[in-house]
Nucleic acid binder design. Sequence first.
DNA 1: CACGTCACCTGCGTGC
DNA 2: TGCACGCAGGTGACGT
Length: 253
Amino acid sequence: MDRVITSASIYWPRTIATPSPDEFSRQIQGQRIRTVTRRAKYIHLTLSNVHLFVHLRMSGDLLLRPMGTPHALHDRVILGLSEPLPHAPKELVFNDARKFGRMWLTDKPEEVIGALGPEPLEAGFTAQALLAALHTRRRLLKPLLLDQTFIAGLGNIYTDEALHKSRLHPLRRSDSLQLVEAARLRNAIRSVLRSGIRRNGASIDWVYRGGDFQNHFAVYGRTGEKCRVCGARVRRMLVGQRGTHFCPRCQRH
DNA sequence: CACGTCACCTGCGTGC
DNA sequence: TGCACGCAGGTGACGT
C-alpha cells in the first residue's frame, strides 16, 4: 500500500520533539511510508529517507480519517496522506488530550530508541538474562520494571500485574532475587503482556475505550477488593509517585 | 548510581 | 450547583 505524506498541520507545536515544527513539516512532505513497526512504546514509521517515531504517552491516539473531516477536540498533528487511485486521500491524526505525546522525525533512530532495554516478548529475554540484569542493579522492583532502559514496554498496569502474578513484592530489591523468582517474573511479564495484547489493552477511563483487559486485572485498580488468588484485600501504595497495587498475602516482602 | 520531587497537561470522579 | 481536590495508561529534568 503506497502512501505518501503530502502535508503536516501542527496545532500543538510541543508535540514535535524534533526537529523544529517548521523543519518537521518541510522534511516530511513527499515522504513515502515504507514500513510501520514498534519498538517498546514507540510506533516507528520508516519513511523514504527519514524515520518518524510516535509516542502516545498517557492519552495519545493515532487514527485515520478521510481527508477534510472536521477536526476533533484535541487534534494536535494531522498528516495528509495520498492513497493509490482510486482511493480517496486520508489524514493520519494524532489526537492527544493531555499533550504529553511526542513525535520525532530523524535520520538517527538510535537517538530516539537507542537506550531502550530488551523487548520482553523476544527470544533473548530468558530467566537467566533477566536474573543477570537484575543483579547488575540494586533497585526496587517496581521502579526498575518501569525503567524503559532496563526493560522495554512495561507501564504501570503491566508492572503491577506481572509482580502479582510472580508473587513478588513491588519493594523487593532487584539484586535479592533468586533464579526461580526471576523465572517466575519473566514468565509473568510475558503472560501479562500477551494477555493485554490479546484483549486490545485496557479501557479504564475516558482516555481509551477499546480493549477489555481491565476485566482481567488481578490487582490494578482493585484497591480494597479481594485478591482473586487468596482473598486478601488488595492494597495500594505510592512507589516513586506511581500508584502501586499488590496483594499483601501473595506478595510477601 | 539510586532516589525523591516536580513539571508537563486535561478531564473526570468524589466529597463538601 | 459549584468548587477544591486527588487521580490518571509516561517520561524527563533536576537536586541530593
